[in-house]
C-alpha cells in the first residue's frame, strides 16, 4: 500500500497552489481505496486502514476523531437501531492503535433533543477511549428549547448560543453554532454576535497557527436548496483568510465531501445513524434507505491527524462495515 502522504492530492481550483498545507484524504475499503473524484471533490469511504496508517504517525502529532449526526432516538426504516451503529463507531474508535486525544461531535447528537436521547449518547461515549469529547449542536439538538438542555449538558462555558474555542498542541480549535435563530427560507446562520466574537478570538493569533473550525451545518455552500450551507459563513471565513492552514469540519449532510479553497479545506463527515442522498439526487434530503448489509458502509467516523511543524491535517473517513 502506498504511503498515506502520497495519496490524494487534488487541486480543486486548478490553481497550482502548493498542496502540502492542504487536506490529505486517504480512503481504503478493505484491500483497496474507494476514492470517488467528482468535479474536483473527493468522496471517500475507508475500511479498517487505521492500523497501517498509524504505524506511519511520527511522534508529536495530534490525532482526534470526528463523529457526527448520531441522531439518537431515530428509529425509522433507514436505520432502526442507531444505538448499535453509534456503539459500532465507538468500538471502532476504541480499536484504534493509538487513543485519540479527543473526540469532536459535530452535532445532531439527538434526534429530538430529548433527555433520554442525550443520556444514551453520553452513556455510550463514557466507554470511548479518549480523554474528552467536544460538541457543537445540530438543529435537532435545538428542537423545543433552543438548545438550553444541550448547553447544560455539553456546553463549554461558551458564549451566546454556546460557541467556544480551545487550544490543543498548538492548534486553535473553534466550535461554532450555526443552528440557532434560523430564519424562514434561510440557511444555517452564525449571527452578528458570534461573528464579532470570532473576529476577536483569532485576532491575537499568528498567521502560522493552524486553525480547525467545527460546526454542524457546512460552512461552505454544498446545496442551498436543501439548506446545506450557512448564510453568513463568508464573513467568518474572511476572518480566517490570513491563516496558513484552516480546516473546517462539518456534519449535517450525512456523507463525506471535501473541498479546497485557497488555504481552507472543508470536510464533512458521515453520520453514525443514517446516510442522506447526494445533493439533488432525491426529492428531499430525507434518510436514504439502503439494504441493511450496506448501511454500515455508509456510516462512519473520521480520524484527523495533525503533524506538528507541517500544517497538514490528514483526514481518514472510516465506514462502520
Amino acid at each position: 500500500m502506498a504511503s498515506p502522504t502520497d495519496e490524494i492530492l487534488y487541486d480543486h481550483n486548478r490553481d497550482g497552489i502548493d498542496r502540502r498545507g492542504f487536506l490529505r484524504c486517504m480512503a481504503w475499503a478493505g484491500t483497496g481505496a474507494v476514492c470517488v473524484l467528482n468535479g474536483g471533490v473527493l468522496t471517500s469511504h475507508a475500511l479498517g486502514a487505521e492500523r497501517e496508517y498509524s504505524l506511519k504517525i511520527p511522534k508529536g502529532e495530534l490525532m482526534f476523531v470526528q463523529i457526527s449526526d448520531s441522531h439518537m432516538g431515530f428509529d425509522k426504516t433507514a436505520n432502526p437501531d442507531v444505538v448499535a451503529t453509534f456503539q459500532a463507531a465507538i468500538d471502532k474508535i476504541n480499536a484504534l492503535p493509538v487513543a485519540p486525544e479527543f473526540i469532536l461531535h459535530t452535532g445532531d447528537v439527538s434526534h429530538l433533543a430529548k433527555a433520554v436521547q442525550f443520556d444514551n449518547v453520553q452513556q455510550i461515549l463514557k466507554a470511548a477511549r479518549t480523554s474528552e469529547v467536544f460538541y457543537v449542536p445540530g438543529e435537532h439538538d435545538f428542537v423545543g428549547d433552543d438548545g438550553q438542555q444541550f448547553r447544560e449538558r455539553f456546553g463549554r462555558g461558551g458564549q451566546g448560543a454556546g460557541w467556544y474555542s480551545f487550544e490543543q498542541k498548538g492548534v486553535h480549535f473553534i466550535g461554532l453554532v450555526n443552528v440557532a435563530n434560523l430564519k424562514a427560507g434561510g440557511l444555517g446562520s452564525l449571527g452578528a454576535e458570534q461573528l464579532e466574537w470570532l473576529e476577536k478570538d483569532v485576532k491575537h493569533l499568528k498567521n502560522s497557527v493552524p486553525i480547525v473550525v467545527f460546526a454542524h451545518i457546512p460552512l461552505w455552500t454544498v446545496y442551498p436548496d436543501w439548506g446545506w450551507g450557512t448564510d453568513d459563513s463568508a464573513q467568518a471565513l474572511g476572518y480566517l483568510k490570513r491563516f496558513g492552514s484552516v480546516t473546517v469540519l462539518n456534519g449535517h449532510i450525512h456523507q463525506t465531501m471535501q473541498k479546497v479553497e485557497g488555504n481552507v479545506t472543508f470536510h464533512t463527515a458521515c453520520s453514525t445513524a443514517f446516510p442522506q442522498p447526494k445533493p439533488g439526487a432525491a426529492p428531499s434530503p430525507g434518510p436514504m434507505k439502503v439494504p441493511a448489509e450496506q448501511l454500515r458502509s455508509l456510516l462512519g467516523v473520521t480520524d484527523v491527524h495533525y503533524k506538528k511543524g507541517q500544517h497538514a491535517l490528514a483526514i481518514i473517513d472510516s465506514s462502520l462495515g
Binding site: 483497496g32 474507494v34 469511504h45 442522498p277 439533488g280 432525491a282 450496506q294
Partner: peptide, 21 residues
C-alpha cells in the same frame, strides 16, 4: 464489494430523481 455499493446507490438516486419531478 464497495464498487457494487456505489453502483446501487447511483441506481436508487436515478429513481429518486424521477420522484423529484
Amino acid at each position: 464489494m464497495q464498487r457494487n455499493t456505489r453502483v446501487s446507490i447511483a441506481g436508487s438516486a436515478t429513481r429518486m430523481a424521477a420522484l423529484a419531478v
